[in-house]
């Protein structure tokens, strides 16, 4: 199925859900719960919290489907709700126990241009620079830039203080800037990595 047709179907389902159609909610669940579960699990190791977050996400959709105004992918919209429900679930539970040290991240509403940037990122210079960051800095970038969370929300997800998140983001940006503006020709990869590696 072509991506455009998929998106159209999802948007139609969301409209039906907004109108109170339970079958549409079930259909939306069948389409999206799988990947949402996986993606949330990469942010939080507790299966119970992830289950709660998934249920709460679709419940939120059931109640507020009309807030989707047709901008961006439905999947990105669902992710935006999902990650915030996960943060709520973590807040209700003990936040320290379930964080994993580093996590992948994603922009909240990804337009197609950014999609292009991120797909295949592992092969480019940016990918290399990011990979050279320490896990903590990568996690902070992921949560704030790619997941689109505020520093406060990222702090809950990462299980650290808000100030720590801010300083890590700052150091990560510094390191990335340095890595990306460096001349690569013939440079020593170890020296390159030392320069790109921010102190935790």
């Amino acid at each position: 199925m072509r991506p455009g047709a998929e998106q159209h179907d999802d948007a139609a389902l969301l409209r039906a859900v907004a109108g109170g159609d339970e079958e549409a909610l079930a259909a939306l669940y069948d389409r999206h719960a799988g990947w949402l579960t996986v993606r949330l699990t990469r942010r939080c190791a507790s299966p119970d919290l992830v289950d709660h977050a998934v249920q709460d996400t679709f419940l939120a959709l059931w109640r507020e489907a009309r807030t989707y105004r047709g901008r961006g992918d439905v999947a990105a919209f669902i992710w935006g709700i999902g990650v915030r429900r996960l943060i709520d679930a973590i807040r209700r539970d003990n936040p320290a126990r379930w964080r994993i040290p580093w996590r992948a991240a994603e922009t909240q509403v990804v337009s197609s241009a950014e999609d292009q940037v991120l797909v295949g990122i592992e092969h480019g210079r940016l990918g290399q620079a990011l990979a050279d960051l320490s896990p903590e800095l990568r996690g902070a970038i992921e949560a704030t830039v790619l997941d689109g969370l505020t520093c406060a929300e990222a702090a809950v997800l990462l299980g650290v203080a808000e100030g720590t998140v801010k300083s890590r983001c700052h150091r990560a940006r510094v390191a990335l800037r340095a890595a990306l503006t460096e001349q690569h020709g013939g440079s020593d990869p170890a020296a390159h990595r030392r320069q790109a590696w921010g102190t935790s």
Binding site: P3, V38, A76, A105, V110, I121
Partner: peptide
């Protein structure tokens, strides 16, 4: 999967229903 590859997989999933269904099959 490593972090950086994960980012591109997730970026792709946001726009691709076919791969989303494929992931669901592994849950």
């Amino acid at each position: 999967v490593e972090t950086i590859e994960v980012w591109s997989v997730e970026a792709h999933l946001t726009g691709c229903g076919r791969c989303r269904s494929a992931v669901s099959a592994h849950v």
